[in-house]
Amino acid sequence: MSAQNKDELLSEAVRLREQGHPEQARERLLALTAAFPDSVDVAYQTAWVHDVLGLEAEAVPYYERCLQGEGLPEEDRRGALVGLGSTYRVLGRFGQSVEILRRGVAEFPDDGALRTFLAMALFNTGEHHEAMQLLLRLVATTSDSPRVQRYRPAIEHYAEDLTRTM
């Protein structure tokens, strides 16, 4: 199988997943994975389709593979970091979830999805204060609600320390 065929087959598998045929997409992606075991884009799409199908445990090695390799486009890397962090969390692997999501936030500090999933994982590890800080800062900086923006200074102030009353 040539690289050109790989790209065409990968595009077809992504289309199938997007059109609501994840099982067919999975079959094609598993065949591509066998043919191109070092392909980070194939690994990423294979992880994604397993997540779509609720096969989180099966998604993990593909996420790990695509993040260890080189050449994954930035947007896919963001998706893989969110996907793996979220998947670890769903599987009850909270420490690993926090670790991968912290890595994602370090690489992409402005990514609200990564910060949101990190907050959820921090909650699961009992780090409630930091989880609330992340969420309050996210709300204050990303909400387009005029009411939220009106109170933004107060929200940011309390994000520093929720135990503070003044």
Rank of each mutant, 00 (worst) to 15 (best):
D38P: 02
E160G: 02
R93S: 15
S143Q: 00
F108I: 11
E156N: 06
M132N: 05
V139L: 15
P37R: 03
E70P: 07
L53P: 08
F36P: 00
S86I: 04
E58L: 05
E107V: 11
S145P: 04
H50I: 13
Y63E: 04
L67W: 06
G54L: 03
A43G: 10
Y151W: 13
P61V: 10
A80I: 06
M132V: 13
S97G: 13
H129T: 15
G85I: 05
Y158D: 04
T141Y: 03
E56V: 14
R152F: 03
L84P: 10
Q68R: 14
R150P: 09
T142I: 06
L84Q: 05
Q45A: 15
T87S: 14
L134Y: 01
L101M: 12
L114M: 03
L91F: 03
A80S: 07
D161G: 06
V139N: 03
G83S: 09
L138M: 10
F36K: 05
P153L: 07
L101G: 03
M132W: 08
I155Y: 08
A119Y: 01
A59W: 05
D144W: 11
E75L: 13
G54V: 11
A43Y: 02
A35M: 04
E127R: 04
V148H: 00
G126F: 13
E107R: 14
H50P: 09
T125S: 06
E107I: 08
S97M: 05
F117I: 04
P73Y: 09
G69T: 10
T142C: 01
A80V: 09
Q96E: 15
M120R: 13
N124V: 02
H129W: 09
L114Q: 07
L138T: 02
V40N: 02
V40A: 07
A119M: 08
Y158C: 08
